[in-house]
Design a binder for these strands. Structure first.
Lengths: 152, 152
DNA sequence: CCAATTTGGTTTCGTTTTGCAACTGATTGG
DNA sequence: CCAATCAGTTGCAAAACGAAACCAAATTGG
């Protein structure tokens, strides 16, 4: 589907100079981040992803291909003509802080008090502390105490 | 449009127990996070958002309404019958770490070396350091050294 | 105060994307 | 070798999206 005419690598960027926009261009849809989340949680095969997310199979095909093309996932080879498996690339793994902040926001704002949800824990089983932007000098930052500088 | 029949508050959650999925249900589309980004950068009026993002006007209407319904934005209205402005709620402002991690990933992986992009700086004009998940004891964490625990 | 302009949408309509279900051809397990 | 499973495709209908025209209330200029 539309993967025929030497696909001109997408419609360029939504906002070429903004890193947020570029990232959203790559993973800002209903499924990509959930696929990444599941890959981080051990999903490797087509059906792993399909069953965990519940995504339609043709859309999953498209997303896996897209994420692979953009270097977030890779097909890990099988010696002979075996079945393919997907694995996160370094760039894909590097989305970990994004997944963590999405998760932590959800825990704080998308659940009623007492409503059960899964939790991210470290190797010792302790809950991962909330991620908070800090200044060069270590003080906490918010959107009010930061600004975007153009062009650099 | 479709805002008529006492809108049954959406199709429930994609994956009810996963905080990542809930957050993605709310802001996981092409525009919502860019609207949030612009609000953090000072956008307040309909045309502010329209011009900064380039989003179609009808879609912008829908997204502003949706984000408002879900408590990420609020209309602060002026005393008399003045024009409405939008402002981030506390929950909306609390997406700051998400925007920051998206930005930092983009800076690391979505630009060629030497390609110019905007930068987030603190009050002193210093670049905000990369956000990294750490364990309770302070050691850095990756997706390989964490796990999701169900049900809590 | 009044006319012109701007703002904040809404409506219409054509295009794209998404989702479901059925189907196909390799792969595997027994 | 046979049946089940896996990794997709294909066809089609429904939903979401986008561009442009339209409109009423608010604002501005004179």
């Amino acid at each position: 589907m539309a993967a025929d005419d030497t696909d001109r690598q997408g419609p360029a960027w939504t906002d070429p100079s903004c890193p947020v926009a570029r990232t959203v261009d790559l993973v800002g849809d209903r499924w990509s981040l959930l696929i990444i989340r599941d890959a981080m949680d051990g999903a490797r095969s087509f059906t792993d992803f399909q069953q965990r997310t519940g995504i339609a199979r043709n859309i999953l095909t498209d997303r896996l291909r897209r994420l692979t093309q953009h270097g977030l996932l890779a097909q890990v080879d099988a010696p002979s003509g075996k079945r393919r498996r997907y694995a996160l690339t370094e760039a894909g793994k590097d989305l970990f802080p994004v997944i963590v902040t999405l998760r932590q926001w959800g825990e704080r704002h998308a659940f009623d008090a007492g409503e059960p949800h899964s939790v991210l824990v470290d190797g010792d089983g302790a809950r991962v502390p909330d991620l908070l932007p800090v200044a060069a000098n270590g003080s906490p930052l918010t959107s009010d105490t930061t600004s975007v500088r153009r062009h650099t």
